[in-house]
Design a protein around this nucleic acid. Structure first.
Lengths: 138, 138
DNA sequence: TTATTACCTAAAGTTAACTCTAAGTCAAGC
DNA sequence: GCTTGACTTAGAGTTAACTTTAGGTAATAA
């Protein structure tokens, strides 16, 4: 079975070996095997686990909570409900983040147009007649 | 002209007065006026500026960079290009974040289905025959 | 007049997620 | 046999964005 060094895995996930050791210390990858001299040996299944960890991370989940999930995985079928609920929560959280980003995007696109118009006419004053009130950070 | 206290503004933006004072200290709202006794007085235009600040914050922009934008605003038309470029960059950044969230969502939805199926059959083993390899954190 | 309430400052503390440092081990190549 | 490079650990340091603390002022209500 193909295995990987910590540096190979770090490069694959765009992390540093330091960060992977930190994840290990925090209990995110407790199943990693070692060589007789103590070096971490990453198996294919470890890569798959790290993919889930990265997914949870990019959903905004803190490392301590990811650790709980990893512990549930080790506990087996008795934690299936918790894990299901957790992913439903993650789904709701990501949906909320997407909604917020959409609202943010609308303001930003409005500002892009605002500054495009201002640049074309050489001055921000072009907007002064359109808006009723002027403000300091437009 | 209607004005607002720091607590009113904090409630409006779902922040604390502490946080608004911190933003002031960091140079995000240098245009705030004070009463004779030193209390901050927020005008309508300050609220508008804070809306932009909140937008930039939720786009993932660090406070020090938002400060630069606020400084550019004070400098006038000579910084129109910088401000336009900044909003174009913000737009690209938010687009990238949305793409990442979409990819994250796909994995999460897959996991929701995975755990729904496992729960229905009472054991995760139901997936063992479908996948070629098993892994520790599925 | 006193108590309360809302505000103020400066500065220290907190938290998450790294990130770095120092000192050491081990296997491979010259 | 020695050097090099990739790994190891424990623990200290960093950064961002707050958050809290301590001590103080000013206006208002009883």
């Amino acid at each position: 079975m193909k295995t990987y060094s910590i540096t190979e895995v770090a490069e694959y996930f765009n992390l540093t070996p330091h960060t992977l050791r930190y994840y290990d210390k925090e209990g995110l990858i407790p199943f990693i095997e070692r060589t007789s001299s103590g070096k971490r040996v990453f198996k294919e299944s470890d890569i798959e686990s790290l993919k889930i960890i990265e997914c949870l991370k990019s959903s905004g989940m803190p490392i301590k909570e990811i650790k709980h999930f990893i512990e549930w995985c080790a506990e087996g079928d008795s934690t299936l409900q918790q894990r299901y609920d957790m992913f439903l929560e993650r789904k709701a959280s990501v949906e909320a983040q997407m909604d917020e980003l959409k609202r943010t995007m609308e303001v930003i696109e409005h500002k892009c147009l605002y500054y495009k118009t201002a640049l074309d006419s050489g001055t921000e004053d072009v907007h002064k007649n359109i808006k009723v009130k002027s403000s300091s950070a437009q």
